[in-house]
């Protein structure tokens, strides 16, 4: 089967609506198809990968640990828009430590998150074959 560049655009906060959870379910299924997968986090979507999530008070499953497993599925191109962080008073330090192991470099642990400007994000998005927007 042909390989395409798949981009998952995550725009919504992790709780409050089901979009983040169901987007992640698509990503995990897609991992089995050996396509070139990227994720983008923009707008309130940046909260999906925020550190220290706690859902005790809202009766919803805290699924944030699943993002940490993405590296094990060779999903390691995670783009976060800097302006979206800025607008929410966040920095890279507020995000979970998402990493992957590079088998071509003695399994060295490398960061999956790349923080890009809004203009750079536009270029990243333009470079994809398929966009799923959640």
């Amino acid at each position: 089967m042909a390989t395409k560049k798949f981009m998952y655009v995550n725009r919504k906060a992790p709780y409050g609506t089901v979009y983040a959870l169901e987007a992640l379910e698509v990503v995990l299924i897609a991992a089995a198809f050996e396509q070139d997968i990227s994720l983008a986090f923009i707008d309130d979507g940046v909260y999906q990968i925020a550190k220290g999530q706690n859902t005790d008070g809202i009766g919803m499953k805290n699924f944030s640990a699943t993002y940490k497993a993405l590296g094990d599925y060779d999903i390691n191109k995670i783009f976060v828009e800097k302006e979206s962080l800025d607008e929410r008073g966040m920095t890279a330090d507020d995000l979970m430590d998402l990493v992957w192991e590079d088998e071509d470099d003695d399994w060295a642990e490398k960061p999956s998150i790349k923080i890009v400007s809004r203009a750079e994000m536009a270029d990243v998005l333009a470079d994809q074959d398929v966009h799923y927007s959640f």
Binding site: F6, Y19, V26, I29, F33, Q35, V130, H131, S133
Partner: peptide, 21 residues
């Protein structure tokens, strides 16, 4: 059917068009 049908559809199609919020 399963989510694999979506991924396969996008692989086989020239364009995927998403209608959502």
């Amino acid at each position: 059917s399963g989510l694999g049908q979506l991924i396969e559809g996008s692989i086989q199609s020239d364009r995927t068009v998403v209608f959502g919020d």
